[in-house]
Write a protein that binds this DNA or RNA. Structure first.
Length: 581
RNA sequence: GGGGUCGUAGUUCAGCUGGUUAGAACGCCGGCCUGUCACGCCGGAGGUCGCGAGUUCGAGUCUCGUCGGCCCCGCCA
């Protein structure tokens, strides 16, 4: 029998090549099928299941087993009876005739059935995560994640990157997401912050001459959650010296070429590149899903003097664009009202629609525009009979947000997204700065160390809003997988950047002084990228929630149902920290 | 911070315009069964309708509040 635990076979490791072997297996009872004089039991571990057979003198042992009991059994591998093989199971041709059985622990009835098609709510699954993680789908997500990380480490090692750990207890650097703060006991009234990303440290490492840095890094942001956003998440964090955008693109394209084939996705050797401006104009999004059409069409010129005041003023003061939905003329009034509602959270007043049918044009704007006026819009969009044109007129950022979201919504509703297609692309030439109307100042769109495009540098002072950045995102199927930039390494340029951001020398020194100081002693040109590991695994596993690929995720209210974190603490603990609540 | 939606046996749900004993399926318990793999058949137990107020003769159902899950907007350099 087995000598070492490490040599003991996994449940799903058996097949017809093991016939007649005496084996010992351990695992959890998945299901019992008691036929009276014969009991079948499925035994499960993380690799899968194997069927145990209890008969004759072992019958009484089998009868006592219930789901999730932990057992060790001995037995002999044998071929299943003629015609009794289960083709759905890797171990379906064999079974273990049990000759010895020890219940290591018996389990209470679980709150839900531990199987892939469990109908347990996510809330219940999170409360009983250990049970949930026994489900084959969840196990396979954990395994996939492990393999991706292992492959990424192998890849970066081969590319001569150095993995360096950066601090979890670090310094708050506002401008960005809200920080998680950790009170200091030694320095009462002062706080550490958990890193939103290892940004400053990885740049320090370039000054240090590491040259090529990588880290599978946990990051923390105290912002509201979403299906694809958790307060702590993992990045594949990359930074390198003496490189350009082209080197980063090459690196990541190579990396994806190693990773995505694990799930049967073959990325192209090089990814298409689209400028930020083009993305916004064509897709209304800086992370476009290019797997389907429905591109935005320009309708500004058609609005001019069209006679419909609403459109005229929208075109003058903002933008008017539309989406042509081929065959969409079958949308009912109710569905169209639904689309108008859909668009409202993005700031649009509604959606103006035009239908082209055999009977002519249908539109709420027909009265104002007339049949011919409506046709001008339909023609501009290239509409044919049976098509639907949806139009939004509003300030530019609203038009993009509303139509960008509507486009994805329509594609889902009409099932226009090819299942087996996956699109990768680079989005480039992001704006360097973003104007905030509320604060009437500029914020760094990426972060304050992002370099401007050389040809735009001259505009830093005169017209900072139009300066483009040496920043890039990698996008897959409409999901932002990561982003990065070439950094500023010139003190002069950095001063200009701070000036544009309204950060004076004293403030810059207080916030980032340690990095700026390091830069004075020989900073190499450098740049990098950070990839969202959780999202990447989510896409690879074909899930639509990041929680399914994180072992112990938090709920949308940022609590952990398993540990009930966050929780109150003792008065003593607070006192030691000099805190009052 | 805002909007939407859900909360009823262990679980997933049904429960109409407020009405008498709150149902189903799966699971669980007991019995029968030697080739099942969602085993089958027979029987049984199991409910503070999230919590708290209110309206009403009467509330799972209506109203308000509150807690929790999920989705979205804002936010996320």
């Amino acid at each position: 029998m087995t000598q070492r635990a490490w040599d003991r076979p996994w449940c799903a490791s058996f097949n017809v090549e093991n016939l007649e072997q005496k084996v010992e297996v351990v695992g959890w009872i998945r299901r019992r099928r008691d036929l009276g004089g014969l009991v079948f039991v499925d035994l499960r571990d993380r690799t899968g299941i194997v069927q145990l057979v209890f008969e004759t003198e072992m019958l009484s042992y089998g009868e006592k087993l219930s789901p999730e009991d932990v057992v060790r059994v001995e037995g002999t591998i044998r071929r299943r009876a003629e015609g009794q093989a289960n083709p759905d199971l890797p171990t379906g041709e064999i079974e273990i005739r049990v000759s010895g059985c020890e219940v290591l622990t018996s389990a209470e009835t679980p709150p839900f059935v531990v199987e892939d098609d469990t109908n347990a709510s996510e809330e219940l699954r999170l409360k009983h995560r250990a049970l949930d993680l026994r489900r084959p789908k969840m196990v396979s997500n954990l395994i996939l994640r492990h393999r991706v990380v292992a492959e990424a480490r192998r890849f970066f090692d081969e590319m001569e990157f150095l993995e360096v750990e950066t601090p979890i207890l670090t310094r708050s650097t506002p401008e960005g997401a809200r920080d998680f703060l950790v009170p200091s006991r030694v320095h009462k009234g002062e706080f550490y912050a958990l890193p939103q990303s290892p940004q400053l440290f990885k740049q320090m490492l370039q000054v240090a001459g590491v040259g090529r840095y990588v880290q599978i890094a946990r990051c923390f942001r105290d912002e509201d959650l979403r299906a694809d956003r958790q307060p702590e998440f993992t990045q594949i964090d990359v930074e390198a010296s003496f490189i350009t955008e082209e080197d980063i693109f090459f690196l990541i394209e190579r990396l994806f070429g190693c990773i995505f084939p694990m799930v049967g996705i073959d990325p192209p050797e090089t990814f298409p590149r689209l400028s930020y401006a083009e993305c916004m104009e064509r897709f209304g999004s800086d992370r476009p899903d290019t797997r389907f059409g429905l591109e935005l069409v320009e309708l500004g010129p058609q609005c001019e003097g069209c006679g419909f005041r609403v459109l005229e003023s929208a075109a003058e003061e903002g933008r008017v664009k539309g989406i042509l939905l081929p065959g969409g003329a079958d949308y009912s009034r109710k569905q169209l009202d639904g689309l108008a509602e859909f668009v409202k959270p993005y700031g649009a007043a509604g959606v103006l629609w035009f239908k082209l049918t055999a009977d002519g044009v249908g539109s709420p704007a027909k009265k104002a525009l007339g049949e011919d006026g409506c046709r001008r819009f339909l023609e501009a969009a290239g509409a044919g009979e049976g098509d639907l044109l949806l139009v939004v007129g509003a300030p530019e950022r609203v038009v993009f947000a509303a139509l960008g979201a509507l486009r994805v919504h329509l594609a889902g509703e009409r099932d226009l997204i090819p299942k087996d297609r996956h699109d990768f692309l680079w989005v480039t030439d992001f704006p360097l700065l973003e104007h905030s109307p509320d604060d009437d100042r500029y914020f760094a769109m990426h972060h304050p160390f992002t370099a401007p495009l050389p040809e735009d540098e001259a505009l830093m002072e005169s017209d900072p809003g139009v300066v483009r950045a040496r920043a890039y995102d990698v996008v897959m199927d409409g999901v932002e997988l990561g982003g990065g930039s070439i950094r500023i390494h010139s003190a002069q340029l950095q001063r200009q950047m701070f000036a544009a951001l309204g950060i004076d020398a004293a403030e810059a020194d207080e916030r980032f002084g340690f990095l700026l100081e390091a830069f004075r002693y020989g900073v190499p040109p450098h740049g990098g990228i950070a990839l969202g590991l959780d999202r990447m695994i989510m896409l690879m596993a074909g899930r639509d929630s990041i929680r399914d690929v994180i072992a112990f995720p938090k709920t949308t209210s940022a609590s952990c149902l398993l540990t009930e974190a966050p929780s109150g603490v003792d008065e003593d603990q607070l006192k030691e920290l000099g805190l009052k609540v």
